[in-house]
Design a protein around this nucleic acid. Structure first.
Lengths: 182, 182
DNA sequence: GTCTATATATTGATAGAC
DNA sequence: GTCTATCAATATATAGAC
């Protein structure tokens, strides 16, 4: 029993990682359960055994991916607010993040999917996002600034990925890495 | 001939308006051609006659919707940069815009779909977005600030729509309407 | 230019074997 | 827990009538 639970949990994490990569790259609504399962090396039956439905998979994906993002932002607690922000802007608004959505943050890839998902899913996302904002606000000493930081980085990544040329992508990234704002 | 062209153009605009509303509300990849056509009061055959393919419809949608957004931003050329920005932040980051994606800006709704579309589509979007940025930059007197403005409003709307509660939605909107940024 | 009918593929989900 | 097989529904797209 305990052994089985251990396996189940480990396998679940593994499926979430692989399905998450595929969903972030190709979109959640736009990708079928079969494709999500195939990317994780299983068939659809396995995904249904773990998550019950496609909606259930999205819920689990949101929790898993957002916890991962929050863990990244939580590092280096000794830094000054300005140094932390400069470093996080550089890390998040990077060329690699534009080019590899499958390895990146859930929000620029799937926030629009979440916005169209049932309320239960949006509550899960809200809980995770609020925690992230609270953690960042504590660091920066300002709640509004934390929301502005999150909005800016997500918006910049969304726009950069939607344009065709590397030049304009870099323009968007660079403009948002520098400080400013009226 | 001239009469027929006139009808065609008018009907095309009409189809774009209705299909655009449905696509913004329900997602482009997530919505079938039949649903897009039905929302416009026609059948799929009519959409194919006008746009050739689903991809062709998205291309036309991007042009049409972005030109509409640019026209909104272009109003009130006599205002001071600060007054213009304050007014545009209030207009864009409004409760109504969160609640009615079908009436709102294409970007928070469909940028993720565009990011996954063929390069031709992304080039069309890039052209429109670059024009918008240039127009805003001329007004604000700063190119980077124009990118930051666009990133911030798109990101804030994307996040606000993805959370469940009106309270957190309002938090995000309010924080991004006030000035600030490091 | 728009309709209906249709072709082929894929969707989310379930049942039963192992 | 995962597979294969299968369901009804829906996907994009095309053909031919009007």
């Amino acid at each position: 029993m305990r052994y089985q639970d251990g396996y189940r949990e480990q396998k679940r994490k593994e499926l979430l990682k692989q399905a998450g990569e595929t969903a972030k790259a190709r979109g959640f609504a736009a990708t079928g359960i079969d494709a999500l399962a195939q990317a994780a090396g299983v068939t659809s039956g396995a995904l249904y055994a773990h998550f019950g439905s496609k909606a259930g998979l999205l819920d689990a994906l949101v929790t898993n991916e957002m916890e991962r993002s929050r863990a990244r932002w939580a590092r280096r607690p000794e830094q000054s607010p300005d140094a932390w922000m400069a470093e996080e802007l550089a890390r998040y608004l990077s060329r690699a993040h534009v080019d590899m959505p499958e390895k990146g943050c859930l929000m620029p890839s799937l926030a629009a999917d979440i916005a169209r998902a049932p309320e239960a899913t949006r509550r899960i996302f809200e809980d995770q996002l609020s925690r992230a904002q609270a953690e960042i606000a504590e660091r920066l000493g300002d709640a509004d600034e934390a929301w502005q930081f999150l909005s800016r980085i997500v918006g910049a990544m969304v726009l950069a990925r939607a344009v065709a040329s590397v030049d304009v992508q870099d323009e968007i990234l660079k403009a948002n890495r520098t400080s400013g704002g009226r």
